[in-house]
Amino acid sequence: MNAIGWPNWRRLNQEGIVFAIAILLFAAAALGLPGFLTADNLVAIVRSVSVLGILALGMAVVIIGRGIDLSAVAIMAMSVAWYLQLLNTGTSDGLAFLYVLAGVLAIGLLNGFLVAYADVPAIFVTLATGSFVFGYVRSQLITQDAVPVPGGHWVELLGGVRFLDIPVEVFVFAGLAFLVFLFLRYTKWGRFIYFAGDNPVAARNIGVPVRPMLVLRYVLSAFVALIAGLLTAASLHSINTRIVNSTLLYDIVLVAVIGGIGLSGGRGGVRNVLVGAALIGILLNAMTIIDIPLLYQNLIKAAILLGAIIVDGIINPRDEQTAQQGDI
């Protein structure tokens, strides 16, 4: 990566490959599919991946710091479900939101604490807290899989907000992407995340507060999940907690990782998330226009993703001597 952060086009990496595939698909769809290259459809593509993209942004920050947050979907769905349940049972809006904020903060802190101070691998911590958050909220706090938004509530109104005919999610996604970009690139703490992800021990030795920052990242990810959850509820006027058991979680990791953010940490940025989201968005949109059944869509999606990582594996083989232990 050079100083400005533009990709190095001469050396084709995973990001480049994915980006190239996305461009190719886009071109093919624009030429071959009627109604693909319309402003409305392009907005729809971005909108359809914006919640996914927002979650992937949170995930990206965690992954760059050499972690992973498998509890993101659970936090997203369950925090909002609990919020709506509180509203439906008559708790005042302010208080309910305060409860939910506190809950989200607590889970973020718990994740961070267990990873940073108890040295438990992130994948297990977040797998466990994700399961716990879903289980606890589902069994103790709400009564049904799906919780509707009370009529006339601001969350419902949020779903209808438009600027220039573009849904609000797109702006939130763009805004968050820009914020995360600024944070990662131009703030001290943002740069520290790269150091900590690249070599935690060295980062600690030069005085980076590695552990508190780990906690911060998980709290950040939890709040991003809450935002994504609110947007989902806003557009659907309800939140269905079954989403926790769906493949959404895998999709988030895929969007983040397929764009070239290494799971071993220290590499990648917002641009990689955007590239990953673009590929998934274009792919799904084009397949829906062609009216391919969902089952085949999954197959095609998986095949293209597999192709992308295989090409990357062949072009950039990993070296036995420099590969990190435990980097799976």
Partner: peptide, 23 residues
């Protein structure tokens, strides 16, 4: 004119319907 699957999921239903309405 179109018969996509939602996989019983509201978000998917929304996305496929959006595309359907655009087309």
């Amino acid at each position: 004119v179109a018969k996509p699957d939602s996989n019983w999921d509201a978000t998917t239903s929304r996305n496929v319907t959006t595309t359907m309405l655009q087309q």
